[in-house]
Amino acid sequence: MSGTAQMPGPVARRIRAGDLAELYQRSRAADVGLSEQEFARILDEIASRYLSPTTTEGDSLAFCRGLRLEELALARACAAGHERAWEIFLTRYREKLYDAACSITREDGSARELADSLYADLYGTETREGRRTCKLNYYTGRGSLEGWLRATLAQEYVNRYRRRQREVSLEEKTEAGAQFAAADPPAQPALDPRLVQATDAVLAALGAEERFILASYHLDGRTLAEIARSLGVHESTVSRKLEKGVRAVRERIIGELLRRGMSRRQAEEALETDVRDVPVDVSMRLSQKDRAAAFYRKGSD
C-alpha cells in the first residue's frame, strides 16, 4: 500500500496508510479473507459511529488501536460469509455460546433454544431487501467478541421474557373481560404530593453511580458482590456507598419536605410511614355490624 493512501471514510481518513496497514496486520484480517480495503471500510464505519468528525488523527488512531481488531475482523469476515472465518468462529465460540446461554437461563432446554436462535441470527438466516442480515455485522470490537455474544444473548433473553409477559397479560385481560371481571383494586390513599415531588427532586439530583447502586440493590435484588462486579469496584466500596446513599437520600428528602412547608416531625413521619402501608379499611371501620348496638336507645333494655 502506498504511503499516501488513506482510509476512505470521513472520520478515519486521518489515519495514515502506514498505520492502517499496521492495524490490518494486527487484526489478521487477511487470514480470514478480508482485504485491506474492506477492513478500512469497517474501521471507518465504527469510527464514524463513536468518534466525532473533529477527532484528531492521534485520537482516531488510539481509538482504532483500542478495538479488538482480531475479533472484529473475524466477526466481520463471518458476516461476509468467509468459510475460514466461520471455521475459526465455530471452534472458538460455539461451545461458549451454549455455556453462556446456560448461565443465563439456568436450564438446559431453554439454553439450547436461546443459543440456537442467536446462532441463526449470527449466521444470517433472515434476509432484508434481498440481502442476508447477519448479526455479527453489529459487532464493533469495543469489548470482547465473547462478551458481545453474552450481551446479545442476554438481550434476547430479556426481550423474550418481556414478550412472554405481555402475551400472558393479554390472555388474562381477555379472560377477565369475558368471564371473570376482575374486582377493582382497593382505592389507595393518596400520597402527599409534596412527598412525591421531594423524592423525585432528590433522586434526580443523585449521581448515576449512586442511583445505580440503590436501584440494583433495592429494586433488582442484586448482591453487593454482583454490583461491585458490574462497577469494577470492591464489594466493601459498594456497601459503604449504599449505606451512605440511603442515609443521604433520606436526609435530603426530609430537607426538601422542610422546604415545602412541613415540620421536621411531619417530614419524618411522611417518609417513614407510607400511608398506603397503614392497614386501615375505612369502609370496614364505618360499617355497622351490630344493628341493635347502632340503634341503641337508652333505656330500651
Binding site: E146, G147, A151, R162, A208, F212, A215, D220
Partner: peptide, 21 residues
Amino acid sequence: LDHLSRCADCRQIVALTAPEV
C-alpha cells in the same frame, strides 16, 4: 451508567453479561 441507573432491563443484561472476575 446513567442509563443503567434508570433502566432495569439494561441492568439485567449487564448483570447477565458480566463474566466471573
